[in-house]
Amino acid sequence: MNKHPKDWLEAELQDTIDEDVEIEMEDAILSAEIKRIYRSHHPDQLLRKEYFRELLRLQSELIRLQDWVSYHKEKVVVIFEGRDSAGKGGAIKRITQRLNPRIVRTVALPAPSDREKTQWYFQRYVPHLPAGGEIVLFDRSWYNRAGVERVMGFADDDQVEQFFQDVPEFERMLVRSGIRLVKYWFSITDEEQQMRFLIRIHDPLKQWKLSPMDLQSRVRWEHYTKAKEEMFERTNIDEAPWYIVPGNDKKRARLNCMNHLLDIIPYEDVPHEEVTLPNRVFNPDYEREVLPRELYVPQKY
């Protein structure tokens, strides 16, 4: 029996909600004790229904933004910075969840190779900048030099100073070339980071997120604070200002970031060709081949 279009729509919406719930499970697989402690520190959490309603609304607007960028050949770069466990990855995941990966892509570069260390500092980031009709989200960026590289001693004082002198003009060049550059800093408190690190330690699905560098960031909290303050002071330019996202509440941080991004880019509806489903062509002489059973994935579920 064929389903009514309304039934198909309801089924698709349920799949959409299920997908969101699966993603949210990453925050839910905790021991009862850790969950109790975490909730005691976050008593004013958004209701799940309210969060999902706003998430889906904002994601639908992001599709409109994506269509506008593609249609007008706009170029958008969004930088996500912040302390380890501040929620950058979670925000990026919700932003890109329903978008076209051919238009919107995430860049998360590994540590530079020996060859890259000899290049102009910004050189390895340049190939990842967008062409017309693209949005690039940097999960950490060239600001590594002002943060982790500086604090951990991977860059000396002269290199850091050269970075601070170069980055404003580099970003002005990007803006002059037509790139819309947006910079977010996800901010969390000392206590919140400690809580999130403890959750990662005790959650086997999240332990991979903890690196020796992350653990050192706890030891050097104050060093990171001083580095962040100087970074804001010297790189908060009119052409590309910093926007701080309070991140202690993950869900609100994601929604606020998405809403702000939509607010500062002047997107609008663009023309769309009407899509109609063509009739299938039936060939009476065609017989579907019976494929060998071993080609199929075992039906275990």
Rank of each mutant, 00 (worst) to 15 (best):
V77F: 05
I103P: 07
Q162K: 14
S211C: 05
R234Y: 08
P212C: 08
E161W: 08
I79A: 03
R150E: 03
I34S: 12
D20I: 15
Q165Y: 07
D249V: 06
P271V: 08
E294G: 00
F122P: 02
S70Q: 13
R150S: 03
K75C: 02
V175I: 10
F80H: 10
W208P: 01
H223M: 09
S141G: 11
L215P: 00
I201P: 00
N279W: 08
Y296G: 01
R293I: 04
M152V: 07
H272G: 01
L295H: 07
R176V: 01
P43A: 06
Y267D: 06
H4C: 07
V297W: 08
K88P: 12
H4Q: 10
R98I: 06
I29V: 15
E268V: 03
L65C: 06
F186W: 05
K228M: 06
V167A: 08
W120N: 07
E12R: 15
R293A: 10
Y143Q: 04
P298L: 02
A227S: 13
D190H: 15
V219G: 00
P212I: 09
W208C: 00
R234G: 01
M25T: 07
Q216M: 11
F122A: 13
A28L: 15
A108R: 14
V281S: 08
D285S: 11
L109M: 13
E10S: 11
F154C: 01
L277Y: 09
E273S: 08
D263V: 02
I237Y: 03
R98Y: 12
N100H: 10
S141K: 09
L181I: 07
L181P: 11
M173F: 15
N144P: 01
E274R: 14
D139G: 07
I265K: 04
R220K: 15
L58G: 04
Y121C: 04
F163P: 01
L255D: 02
G87H: 05
W242C: 05
I63C: 00
Y71V: 01
I23G: 00
F80T: 11
P43V: 09
L261M: 14
F80E: 08
E61Y: 10
F52L: 15
Y224T: 03
E161T: 13
E192Q: 08
M258R: 06
D18R: 15
A227R: 10
Y38F: 11
E10V: 10
Y243M: 12
D18T: 12
V136N: 06
V275K: 14
I264W: 12
R218S: 03
E169F: 12
P43W: 13
K93I: 06
W142P: 01
R196P: 03
V126E: 07
E222I: 02
E24P: 00
G178H: 12
E26M: 13
R98V: 09
G147H: 10
K73S: 12
V270F: 09
Y243K: 15
E171V: 14
G82H: 07
S60P: 00
S113P: 04
Q159V: 10
N259C: 03
I265W: 14
